[in-house]
Simulated assay, not measured.
Amino acid sequence: MDATAASRPNTEAERFVEFIDVEKSYDGRTFAVTRLNMHVAKGEFLTLLGPSGSGKTTTLNMLAGFERPTHGSITLNGQPVDRLPPYERNIGMVFQNYALFPHMTVEENVAFPLSVRKFSKTETTQRVHKALDMIQLRKFGDRRPGQLSGGQQQRVALARALVFEPSLVLMDEPLGALDKKLREHMQLEIKQLHSMLGVTIVYVTHDQSEALTMSDRVAVFNNGGIAQIGTPDSLYTQPANPFVASFIGENNTLEGVVDHVSGTECQVSLTGGGRIRATPIDLEGQGTACLVALRPECIQIARSGTNDNAFEATVEGRIYLGDHLRLLARLQNGQLLTVKVSPETMMITGETISLGWSQRDCRAFPTQ
């Protein structure tokens, strides 16, 4: 099944945002986005995830109104927005560089969208105070952005995007400038605010762990289109193609040729020797060149013959990472596996070990 294929949702709430056959070309020859069909449900947190140049930011910019589609249409709450300027779309925006006005105080920055929309002074004050209370920065209202930390500035940018109660909030790499610890803290803060407010969020990132942590669904972009869209757990455990398998999380990739396919199982002869039982994904049958993807945490140090797959391997390296030990194990056919095991596991470099894993934990894809 095509990873981008999905039936059109039935209700307006399910297609609160909808892209219909959207394409975008800047030069008339090459396309930054091709044949994009995607919907966002009301109240959903959808993340657009992918490497640089995959089309995710262009998609966000078309939704924001900063770019126009070359072909196709975009609707918001059932209404086409292709020709509407950004300020008429009732959309909040949060950017990586915060985009705060340095000469304004925190309160003035948060109040700016309200002044543009001609809110009364009384309602502006009430909304600004409520927004600053929400991000726990009320006492910093009279400071300027330069007097705040990066995390505090990003929280102000978030409050400014939410203060006028937009129908949709777009976030473009909003945590990219923060250090790892603060980034992880802000991920949880944004997710909590989303749960509390129920606002619809479309979020762009190239950080897979960020996408998995925060999202209701993730659209994985590659070469201008969606390689797969689904819940974080479905993308991780059931990748639809080699790109998603390699981009989401960590995967071992083994090369081989299909011996036979029988329903939900197949047997693959690995390059260099050995056979493996796997779950076939879009394999045509015997003789098909394929890649087998296997998560490091799905490999066990074999203690018995109960595994669907069992191999001898030599430990070539061990890396201590606190909560787990990462082994580099070389199979007899020369292919290298990464194995995640308990940090208490006693293994030494050069030791021969037995590895095993289940057929359902490895997926065989045709070589692209």
Rank of each mutant, 00 (worst) to 15 (best):
T57C: 04
T367S: 15
D142H: 15
G272R: 00
F311T: 00
A329R: 10
E107F: 12
G287A: 08
E312V: 13
L327A: 06
L254T: 10
R127K: 08
R68K: 08
N252L: 00
G92S: 03
A211S: 07
L337N: 02
A302F: 07
K340D: 14
R15M: 02
E108Y: 06
T105I: 05
A289V: 12
R303W: 14
G350C: 05
G50I: 09
N223G: 15
D82F: 01
R277C: 15
S149Q: 09
T306C: 11
S209F: 14
H185R: 11
R160C: 10
R117T: 05
D361H: 13
N222I: 08
D308V: 03
Q152Y: 07
A227Q: 02
I20R: 11
T345F: 04
G72D: 00
S120K: 03
A278Y: 09
I226A: 00
F101E: 14
L327T: 04
E107A: 13
G350K: 04
C298T: 15
E44W: 05
G78W: 00
V202C: 06
R155H: 10
A211F: 09
A240E: 01
T349V: 11
P174H: 03
T125E: 10
V128N: 06
S115F: 15
S262R: 09
R83H: 11
E344L: 15
M38Q: 08
S354I: 10
V116Q: 09
L175Y: 01
Q96F: 02
Y26G: 05
S269P: 12
T59W: 05
Q147G: 05
E23D: 15
R318I: 10
R35V: 00
F247M: 06
G55T: 00
V94N: 04
